[in-house]
Write a protein that binds this DNA or RNA. Sequence first.
DNA 1: AAACGGACCAACCGCTCACAG
DNA 2: ACTGTGAGCGGTTGGTCCGTT
Length: 301
Amino acid sequence: MGRHSCTEKEKLRKGLWSPDEDEKLNNFITRFGVGCWSSVPKLAGLQRCGKSCRLRWINYLRPDLKRGMFSQEEEDLIISLHEALGNRWAQIAARLPGRTDNEIKNFWNSCLKKKLIKQGIDPKTHKLVPETGDQILQPKGLPYLATSDEIGQEFRVNNIICGEKEYDPPFLSEYQDSFDPNGHHSNFVTDYDDQNNQIEGNPDSNSNYGFNSLPDSANIDPGIFVDTDFSDGSTSRICSYLRSSNSSNVNGHTGIQTNNMMPNSEQYLWDFDTKFKSRFQFQIKNEENSSSWQEGPSSYI
DNA sequence: AAACGGACCAACCGCTCACAG
DNA sequence: ACTGTGAGCGGTTGGTCCGTT
């Protein structure tokens, strides 16, 4: 399938936009509104591709943009939403009026991520990073879980509706059945080996990915499983696996506002396509990674 | 003053999805 | 059902600014 690419077109400008270009685009959109972006450059007299025009309008020229520093409320909301949604910047931006996905993404990568790291929080999982060099389970994805009588209820973050809770018995049973008596999941390592060329059974092998422990299926309460779909058409899901363990309270440690649906949760990114293949990804943290995260001029605490 | 490096951010790139023909 | 195209998204890049040496 021939993919349209701006680079294939000739005589198209790239790089920063000039005030003149901004004015042309702004005048055109103000007058005719947002329509077919591919025709905008020609009609507006710009030597840009439609994609570039769209981006410029959305990220810079749009009149409803808030601009300026992020407030503490916005910051807390982004962290909470990221915990629930992961790197779905567009979905996060949809819940922050006047902010763009690009702006939030940049803010996260340049600021928030470092703040969390400074506080000893893994920005991917939003879980505490242990001080020791021990390798621990850092799940990247699992179904969102909750009690079966909560099916159909709204899933909220900071009182903002993010989705609807669902129940997924087939997945649950498969997930539970797939553990061996030692609480290990053979498929995980096998699949991981298939996809990432890791050596089976060797989580230390020269990568951030792998695992050396998994929750014991005997400790899993079937009643706490819910599968929440945030995909809105995509195949991705946000999932969580809640344990009624007595681990330390991340929220209490950070002061970050999070939804009360997910106390002590381990967050997993869940690919719907691989759902019935029992494929998961886990991330291993080691001392080397942790030490590299300490860098950064944050003074958040 | 110059060189260097990190932080920030605008813009680009490549991919997927939706939809029309 | 298949194909081509546009829109949208997330990851990445590269330019600029600014503090430090």
